[in-house]
Computed example of a mutant assay.
Amino acid sequence: MEIYVKSRGFAQEEGYCWLPETPSILTLNRVTDCIQTESPSLVLGRYSGRLLLLITGLEARGRTDFRDRTIRNSIAWVAEDSAPHEQQLRAIAVRALRTFLEEKKDGLDAEIDQAIPVGGTDGFTVNCELLKGLSASATLPNHPQKSDREREEHSTDKLAKNCDRTKETLATQLEQYGLPQREGPLVVVTGIKSKDALIQARVWRGLSKSVEEEDWTPIRERQDAPNFPGEAFQPEKKFNETATLVAGIVAIGMLFLGFLWF
């Protein structure tokens, strides 16, 4: 499993950057397009045979920049798509969600910040051993097998307002159920992001402060959603296809009338 950290140092020239490097899975799939990165946000998804858990907007403890602004940490876990890795990343995501709503002094954000000490050419370094230990210790509780009805209900894509109650119910769902077997950002939790943006991203569970519904609402129509990651919806194409079909029907009708005339 690969772990990447984004933070910054105090000095003006020590701006935000990823260590050891920018994860290619983020740029290739434009993962951050579906979240507000400066707020506490989370993306858990599947991309080309790899699993990604991205957590952003975690406040550093006692570290500020040259303008006395609180530094925010981001972290990404990337692993091969397998059942053990999925369970591990779901367990970390559960901890992150409960950290978001409880703001514990010893929460996940504090453990991550502890692994990002000051120093180095970028103004911060990364204690990889601490982060590996944090990842290895993440486990999920055992739950009884679910009924067919519960599994069917759970498979429906849903959105809700980002609040403490929905974050807790999402954490419980991630403890009890596996992720859908499809590509893209499956779980998204963020600040200000429109409902349409989450629908276009084809999320399975999405929380945003811009969504008005405080209860989980099924997404039943996806006519505007792309069929594949990165594929844009093209209304012009659908219009052209419809126009071609209508023209064909008119032409056939005219030929038929001409045949009757003669």
Rank of each mutant, 00 (worst) to 15 (best):
R8M: 09
A110N: 09
E241T: 11
S41Y: 02
A243K: 14
E175P: 09
L26D: 04
T121E: 13
S82A: 12
T37N: 03
R165W: 08
R205W: 03
S208L: 02
Q12D: 11
L108V: 02
T56Y: 00
E221M: 08
E150D: 14
I75M: 00
S39L: 09
E221A: 11
L260N: 07
A60T: 05
E236V: 07
A96K: 02
P226M: 03
R8N: 09
I192W: 14
A201D: 08
R98M: 15
G191K: 05
L28P: 01
P226G: 07
A160M: 06
W216G: 07
T166H: 02
S48Q: 13
R8A: 10
R63P: 03
L130I: 08
K146Y: 04
Q88F: 03
L140T: 05
S74Y: 01
G248E: 10
R165I: 15
D122I: 08
K238A: 12
E13F: 13
P180H: 06
Q87V: 04
L186K: 01
K146W: 09
N240V: 14
G253D: 08
L207E: 02
E38F: 14
Y177E: 10
P218D: 10
L198M: 07
D224R: 15
L159I: 07
E221N: 12
A79Q: 07
P185Y: 02
L140K: 06
S41L: 07
D148C: 05
R61I: 09
G230S: 11
R63S: 04
K104S: 10
W261S: 11
G107W: 08
E2G: 11
S74G: 07
Y16D: 08
T156Y: 06
Y47A: 03
I3E: 01
L44V: 01
P40Y: 02
A91Y: 04
I112L: 11
L207G: 02
A232I: 10
L140V: 03
Y47P: 00
D148A: 13
K238C: 06
V126C: 09
Q88R: 13
I192A: 14
W261M: 12
A251D: 10
